[in-house]
C-alpha cells in the first residue's frame, strides 16, 4: 500500500522498538533509582518530622503535667502552711496556758510562803512579846532579892551552913 509522505510501517515499528528499549532502560537505570532515593529521603525527613512532633507533644504533655504538679504542690504547701500555722497557734496557746498556770502556781506558792512567813514572823513576834513580858515580869518579881545568881549562891551557902531554906 502506497501511503503518502512515505510513511513506512516497518520504520514506525523500528522507531517503536528503539523507543521501547530506551524507555525501559531509562526507567530501570535512572527514573526508578532516583525516585526510590527521593522517596527514601522523604521518608527519612518524614520520620524525623514525626519524631520531632511526637517529642514536642510529649514535652507539651510533660509541661502540662509539671504545671499541674506545681499547682498541686502550691496547694499542698498552702494547706501545710495553714496546718502549721494552726499547730503553731495551738502550741502558743498551750504555752501561754502553761505560762499562766505556772504564774498562778508561782503566785500561789509565793502567797502560801508569804503567809507561812507571816505566821512564823507573827509567832516569833508573839514569842518575843511573851518572852519580853516574862522577862519583864521576872524582873519585876526579882527586883528586891537580887539577881537569881545571888539568890542561888545564898541558897547554896545556907544549905552549907545547915540552915533551913529561907
Amino acid at each position: 500500500m502506497n501511503i503518502p509522505l512515505n510513511i513506512d510501517w516497518q520504520q514506525i515499528l523500528l522507531h517503536l522498538f528503539n523507543f521501547a528499549i530506551l524507555a525501559g532502560g531509562l526507567y530501570f537505570l535512572l527514573y526508578k533509582p532516583v525516585k526510590d532515593f527521593m522517596a527514601k529521603r522523604e521518608s527519612y525527613y518524614q520520620n524525623m518530622d514525626n519524631e520531632t512532633k511526637s517529642k514536642l507533644k510529649e514535652a507539651e504533655e510533660l509541661k502540662v503535667s509539671y504545671n499541674r504538679q506545681l499547682s498541686d504542690v502550691a496547694q499542698e504547701i498552702a494547706a501545710k502552711r495553714t496546718e502549721a500555722q494552726k499547730a503553731i497557734d495551738a502550741s502558743r496557746e498551750e504555752q501561754l496556758q502553761q505560762a499562766r498556770e505556772e504564774a498562778a502556781r508561782i503566785v500561789e506558792t509565793a502567797r502560801v510562803n508569804s503567809e507561812q512567813e507571816h505566821n512564823k514572823m507573827l509567832a516569833n513576834v508573839q514569842k518575843e512579846i511573851s518572852d519580853l513580858a516574862l522577862t519583864t515580869t521576872e524582873k519585876i518579881l526579882l527586883k528586891g532579892e537580887g539577881s537569881p545568881f545571888e539568890q542561888f549562891l545564898n541558897a547554896a551557902n545556907a544549905e552549907k551552913r545547915g540552915e533551913p531554906d529561907a
Binding site: 520504520q11 523500528l14 522507531h15 528503539n18 523507543f19 528499549i21 530506551l22 532502560g25 531509562l26 537505570l29 535512572l30 533509582p33
Partner: peptide, 20 residues
C-alpha cells in the same frame, strides 16, 4: 532519522548507566 534514534538511545542509555 532511525540511525539518529539509535545513536540517541545508545548515548542516553550509556549516560544513564554511568549515572546509575
Amino acid at each position: 532519522a532511525f540511525i539518529s534514534g539509535i545513536v540517541v538511545t545508545v548515548v542516553l542509555l550509556v549516560a544513564a548507566a554511568l549515572i546509575r
